[in-house]
Design a protein around this nucleic acid. Structure first.
Length: 549
RNA sequence: AGGACUAUAGCCAAGCGGUAAGGCAAUUGGCUCUGAACCAAUCAAUCGAGAGUUCGAAUCUCUCUAGUCCCGCCA
């Protein structure tokens, strides 16, 4: 069954448009600016753009909004494409806003000819100063009433590189007294002598977002232009440009709330700082909420998408608890990941009554939830490793695992009873001695007596040493602020590296293979790191709180 | 002379005039060869506040309050 959004205010709006005949088909677009890596916050926008179109058998374009050469880099283009593909989406067309520069220029001329745009010679600082404030109207530019002929000529000369950067802009002539700041004669073209990745040095004037975006949408025949809440105030301007530039198609802009995760760093600026100042391994560090990070962390696109689909779309910016995301990851892995025993912090146990030199192979279900996955054979002998915290010399109340005199089950094997605790001269526990009961073999149907605890183990001779990384999400104490001391509040325990053991049949493991290490949670084979030929496992997510001690 | 938007449990939310869905989290039991999973039960007597309209209001109206966004030649 293919999951998608259940109906939401966007889908019902689109449905109504179709019903009323406002549009005959649905075309959406995902319009990233190539100036950074995609992160979890983008997934809602991506899925909404693609899924809404899919719902109505429409199309979705990928359009790079590359109207500002000073901030953009082709480096990001490929990563964005890769991430969208990884999420499982295919765009119907790949477009660039920069491909519309000629058309946009001509539309600006239409505006000038209608007396709705003018060249302003004021400096950026003057324009800013005369824009007014939130509570006071702006002041009209002294250049606002230039003749159409003069504006036409000036604009052409701007294009012809006759004026220095910053000396002139083209502005829409709307209303300097509008309560909506966006309508106070917005700048629509600025002069920038920066080479553009696509158009090179052909242009020195570049259109602003507010002008380029609605017209690009109209040019492509976009019907529904989905964007985030902060663009609500831009909608009147969006409609104004589409109307006054006499575009044939009239797209509808619909705004939705963004999706944030609690205490998670998501802003491009802070993400970049983390990477550049080497707080993390790179853009794909498993602790980051970038799409690449989540991927390397072991999250699947399906889990991510289900999470986003089930987190209803509304007009509030939602801050969702991380545990909500983790729930979907566990749900996904529960039925797909093979189970295996692993010991992260080893403690040796010698089973004193087990014959020396004997090895037997026991059956272990690969995933009890999914019997079709079958069984595997695991070696068992006299010496094994168990988890350090599965033993307590002095048990606390309600501790069901191993302690002197207590009997527990070794999963898939036998009951063992702790007989001795061996320590070094410093008093540290070095090994445990235990006895086993052959009658209690797993699968034998033994019912003679019961034990309260079952613990996991790995054979001490037959195993694979590996490096295990326990990642936590890189969190900050409070919601992300604009101030940088944020980095002093980073979770210091975001990475713990352990050397442990896994079962022998994991030796042919491949990058991105996922497993459940029983109680320890779900793990993925890291695609990048191999330490001394050791397998490196990243913890994807832990199981839900295990011990209520 | 400010404007736009939002407000339903710890978090995300459905609801659109007929008497408060669901998910996450939490709590309590049960079960268990993973203290997981699973199963069962519990979890909104101010739906931001107040007033009004109505037989009936979370839903309509008014006023207020709180939060978010808007004063880039960024997107």
């Amino acid at each position: 069954m293919v999951k998608t959004y259940s109906s939401n205010f966007i889908s019902t709006t689109i449905e109504n448009h179709l019903k009323e005949g406002k549009y005959k088909e649905v075309i959406t677009r995902f319009p990233p600016e190539p100036n950074g890596y995609l992160h979890i916050g983008h997934i809602r926008a991506i899925t909404l753009d693609f899924e809404m179109a899919k719902l109505f058998n429409g199309k979705t374009n990928l359009r790079f909004d590359d109207t500002n050469p000073t901030k953009e880099d082709i480096e990001f283009v490929n990563s964005i494409k890769e991430d969208i593909n990884w999420l499982g989406y295919k765009w119907d067309n790949l477009f660039w806003a920069s491909n519309y520069f000629d058309e946009l220029y001509n539309r600006a001329i239409i505006l000038i000819k209608k007396g709705l745009a003018y060249v302003d010679d004021q400096s950026a600082e003057e324009i800013s100063r005369t824009r007014g404030t939130l509570t006071e109207p702006g002041i009209e530019s002294p250049f606002r009433n230039r003749s159409i002929e003069e504006n036409l000529s000036l604009f052409e000369r701007m294009k012809n590189k006759e004026f220095p950067e910053g000396s002139k802009v083209l502005r829409a002539k709307i209303d300097m007294a509008s309560p909506n700041m966006n309508m106070r004669d917005p700048v629509i073209y600025r002069i920038t002598y920066t080479s553009h990745h696509n158009t090179g040095d052909k242009w020195c004037i570049y259109p602003m977002y507010d002008f380029a975006h609605p017209l690009s949408d109209a040019i492509e025949g976009i019907t529904h232009s989905l964007c985030s809440l902060e663009f609500e105030d831009h909608r009147p301007l969006y409609d104004w440009f589409v109307r006054e530039c006499e575009m044939e198609n009239t797209p509808t802009q619909i705004e939705f709330g963004k999706l944030y995760l609690s205490n998670t760093i998501i802003s491009k600026r802070n993400l970049r700082k983390l990477v550049e100042e080497k707080y993390v391994d790179g853009w794909d560090d498993p602790r980051l909420a970038t799409i690449r990070g989540l991927r390397r962390r072991g999250y699947s696109p399906e889990a991510l998408k289900e999470f986003v689909f089930d987190t209803s779309v509304s007009k509030t910016n939602a801050v969702v608890d991380y545990q909500q995301l983790e729930h979907y990851i566990r749900e996904d892995l529960k039925l797909s990941a093979p189970r295996t025993m692993a010991v992260l912090r080893p403690l040796k146990v010698i089973i004193t009554n087990y014959p020396e030199g004997q090895v037997e192979y026991l059956d272990e279900p690969i995933n009890k939830e999914v019997p079709e996955m079958g069984m595997r054979k695991i070696p068992f002998s006299r010496e094994i490793y168990i988890e350090q915290d599965d033993f307590m010399e002095v048990p606390i109340p309600k501790y069901y695992r191993l302690y002197p005199g207590n009997e527990v089950r070794l999963a898939n094997a036998y009951f063992i009873k702790c007989t001795d605790v061996i320590k070094d001269e410093k008093g540290n526990i070095t090994e445990i001695h235990a006895t086993y009961d052959p009658e209690t073999k797993s699968g034998s149907g033994f019912t003679g007596r019961k034990v309260k605890g079952t613990i996991h183990w790995v054979d001490a001779k037959h195993n694979i040493p590996c490096e295990i990384r326990l990642y936590d999400h890189l969190t900050i104490e409070n919601e992300e602020t604009k101030d940088l001391p944020v980095f002093e509040k980073l979770n210091p325990n975001s990475l713990e590296i352990l050397n442990g053991y896994v079962e022998t049949d994991l030796k042919d493991v491949k990058p991105y293979d996922k497993f459940q290490f029983n109680r320890h949670g779900y793990f993925v084979v890291d695609p990048k790191d191999t330490k001394d030929n050791k397998i490196v496992f990243n913890r994807i997510v832990s199981l839900k709180s295990s011990f209520k001690i």
